[in-house]
Structure formats: C-alpha cells, structure tokens
Amino acid sequence: MLEDQSNVKAWFYLLPALILLGIFIFFPIFNAFFLVFVDEYNYMQGTYEGFTLINNFRYVVTDHNFRVAMTNTMLLTFVSVPVSVIIALLISVWLNAIKRLQGFFQTIFFLPYVTNAIAIGMAFAFMFHVRFGLINWFLGIFGISPINWVNTGASWGTAIFALLVYVTWLGLAFKIMVFLSGLQGIDKQYYDAARVDSASRSRVFRRITVPLLSPMIMYITVTSFIGAFKAYTEVIGMFGERLGPPGNDRAVITVVALVYRSLDRSGVPGALSEAAAASLILFGVTLVFTMVNMQVSKKRVHY
C-alpha cells in the first residue's frame, strides 16, 4: 500500500496549476532562451534570420540605456535592501520591546504593505515636490533652500535618491512583520539569562537577537534582493511612464523597466531578442547573488 498507490489523482489535482504555470511561466522562460539566440526576430510575423550566440547580448551590454538601467538597478538593490533590513530590524526590536500601543504601531507599520505601491509612489513624489513638498519644507526649517528632487529638470542624483528613500520605506512593512513574528518566537529565557550574565543591550542585540533571528534575516535578505533586482512598479509609481524627472526621461530606468519598454518597439526586428538578453542577464545576476547569499548563510545562519 505504501508504494503501489497510484498517483493519478495527485496529478489530476495538480493539473490546473500546472497548466497555468506552463502557459505563463515555463513557456515564457523557454521562449526567452529561444529569442535570445535568434537574429532579427520579427514579433509580428514570427520570423527570424538564423541563429546567433552572442549578438543580442553584445548589443545589450553596449547599449547606453541598458548600462543606465543596470547601474540604477544595482544601486537600488545594494542600497535599499541592506538599509531597509537594518531599519526594519531596529524598528521590530523596538516594537517588540514596548508593551503599550504595540498593536497600534504594528498596524501603522504594516499599512504600507496593504496600500498600492503606485499610490504611495505618487504620494512620495509629491512629498519631494520642489515647491509644495514636505521634504523641502522640512529642510527649510534648517535654512536649506529648496532642492529640485523630482520635478522638471531634476538631476539623476536627486531623482535616484528620492526613489531610494521611497523603495527603502516601501520595503519596511513586510520585513518588520516577518522580524516581529520571528522575535516573538524567541524564548524570553535567553534574554533573562543574558540579563543575569550582565550583557549590555547592544551585546544582547548582536550576540543573541541577531543570531537567533538569522533564519528570518536570511529569508528576508534573499527575497528582498530578488525583489529589488526586479524593481519596476516603484519607478512607475514615482515618475510615471517617463521613468525619470520631466526633461530627464529614463534617468532612473531599471532593467525590468527597460525590458517592458522594448515592447514599445516590438515592431522593430530584434527588439524582443534584446529584451530577452537583458532579462537573462538580470536573471544571471540574481542567480549569482542568491547563491552568494546562500553560501554566506551556511556560515552565518543558525537554524
């Protein structure tokens, strides 16, 4: 009975999910691998002129737009992920420590997660507005003259800074929730023991809280890295379809945004192959960093 059971039923139950995954996930992945190795692919007619190994890749990596997109994506990822993980960690430790109003603050910190990213992006864009924005008003208190963050003529630097603030903030909610549930799973006795052992607060945090929370931190870091590499909605939310401040279009474009933008030129032979090449490069980068993360976790994470 243990071995001979027929699994037809199981396959039957899995079928709907498999069909959907097949159409929307597996086929596009294989198709991307196909597209990237053909020359002059015509989307409308489905025709192509022979195969090529590196032409599409070579075109992409020498493309100025791709380089900008890659720089932006990397910057977003390697700044926003560590910063938001650290801030989320501190906030959740603090939240876990308070007794009064904990539920209230938990709700406040979690609200961004259930709010539409585009809407928040628009709100942030307005906060950074050169004349009416909260940020410039705040800086004004200290006598700092208004900075053109995101409005017409704003530079790449200010625009990406504003985007970074927004992306970091947006990522906090989910991280705080995961960390908080992790913290609540840590046996209080460890803290009592540490207290009796005269450990200072910062040592308790470094030597006990962080190691015991490390599986959560690892999980959050890996998923956040992957999420940040795919950043797109955030750019749209803050800058709209221009992908940059007015007059500085595409200044803060990301790789995924670049891939989507290729659809605008889908009539042009080869455009989709370039998009496929760009997304495969991003895929490779994501894969490498996830593997690095996993490797680090073997040494640093205590399950």
Binding site: D187, Q189, Y190, D192, A193, R195, V196, D197, S198, A199, R207, I208, P211, L212
Partner: peptide, 16 residues
C-alpha cells in the same frame, strides 16, 4: 539582576 552577582540555572537551561 546584572549587578547582584548571581548565577542562575534555568529549568530548561536557556543555553544559547
């Protein structure tokens, strides 16, 4: 407690 100079062994040991 940290200044009392006590050693405490918990029921379930609380080893890190």
């Amino acid at each position: 407690p940290e200044e009392r100079g006590i050693g405490l062994v918990f029921q379930n040991y609380a080893l890190y």
